[in-house]
Amino acid sequence: MATNEDVARIGRKLDKMVHKNNTDGALDLLMELKNMTMSLETLQSTRVGMSVNAVRKQSSDEEVQNLAKVLIKSWKKLIDGSKCKSQKKDKNDGSLMRTTSTSKDSCSSEKSSKTTAKSPVELPSLVTSFPVIPLTTDNVRNKCRELLVAALQTADDYKTFGVDCSLLAAQIEEQIFEDFKSTDVKYKARLRSRISNLKDQKNPDLRRNVLCGNISTRRIASMTAEEMASAELKKIRETLTQESIREHQLSKVSGNETDMFVCKKCQGKDCTYTQVQTRSADEPMTTYVMCNDCGNRWKFF
């Protein structure tokens, strides 16, 4: 039986090939998937069907296309079989709860379910065969889902990965709603932060990781603003934090009073200076000067 880790690993490799527009080596990965015994749970949790479908659309290799079609067809049968079993179980459970004279009804229900199993439901693609979109009649929640769909479709990445953005947006919104159990201010604030970060043109990696499944719907629903930020913004924040820490440390030190410095702002000489080792040990210390008259601060090298 194929493990989720192995299937997810192959799915990520296929997604990278699609993203780089280079499907060399895809045939070996598809052969590896073909030799695995796939379960419905693994298909749904890893979403490997989307990756295979995206490779099939992009690859010009006929052998890759044919093998991808074979895999998708076999996984459709697995999903169809699971649906038929579920229908059969529901009908049998319902017949047992009515009366004690339901044995005949149960038999007819089994015959009906067998007939249904013989005529599988036609599915337009593998993507639409995965879990249905969780429904809601709340206008606020539906509007939030529409905004999430628009954010996920900011660029054409979703076409490359073959993702159903409506389903993905509904799952993200569902996770956020589960945290608050209402559409209050906190719920709306979290939705706004997800939408703005997914739409950020300077941070496309966040959106791509969500689309290809590297960041799960549970994860994106609970990430902080710092975790969603781009690498460039994280670096800026770190620099500002270090500067704030340094300024805070300087404000705690009384320093040494001197009249050797002249304030460029008020021309006063009543100053206090402090020396801090901000560079390597073999370089001179940095002198921070503060004017006691106007509060102006500057560095002296």
Rank of each mutant, 00 (worst) to 15 (best):
E63H: 10
Q65M: 07
K57R: 14
E62A: 09
A54K: 04
S45H: 07
L78Y: 07
S45L: 09
A54E: 03
C84P: 02
I79R: 07
K77W: 12
S82L: 08
E62S: 11
D61P: 03
Q58E: 12
K57A: 08
K76V: 09
W75T: 07
L43Y: 06
D61C: 05
D80M: 09
I72K: 01
D80T: 12
V52C: 04
D80N: 15
K57D: 08
K83L: 14
S74Q: 14
V52A: 03
M50F: 05
M50R: 08
L43I: 11
Q65R: 14
D61H: 07
T46K: 00
W75I: 06
I79V: 13
N66Q: 15
S59D: 04
L78V: 10
K85D: 15
N66K: 15
K69S: 12
D80R: 11
V70Q: 11
L71S: 05
G49S: 04
E62G: 02
K85N: 15
Q58V: 07
V55N: 01
L78S: 12
D80I: 08
S60M: 11
E62L: 09
C84A: 15
V52S: 01
I79N: 06
D80W: 11
R47Y: 06
V48P: 02
S74Y: 09
S59E: 04
K83E: 14
R47D: 04
A54D: 03
V52E: 02
S45T: 10
N66E: 15
A68G: 00
T46D: 01
S82Q: 15
S51H: 09
V48G: 00
R47S: 08
S51C: 06
L71I: 03
S60R: 14
S60F: 10
K76T: 14
M50K: 05
I79E: 11
V70A: 09
L78W: 06
D80H: 15
V55T: 09
K69D: 13
I72D: 03
L43N: 01
S59L: 02
D61F: 01
R56F: 05
N66G: 08
K69H: 10
K77L: 13
A54R: 04
T46V: 02
E62F: 06
Q65G: 02
S59C: 06
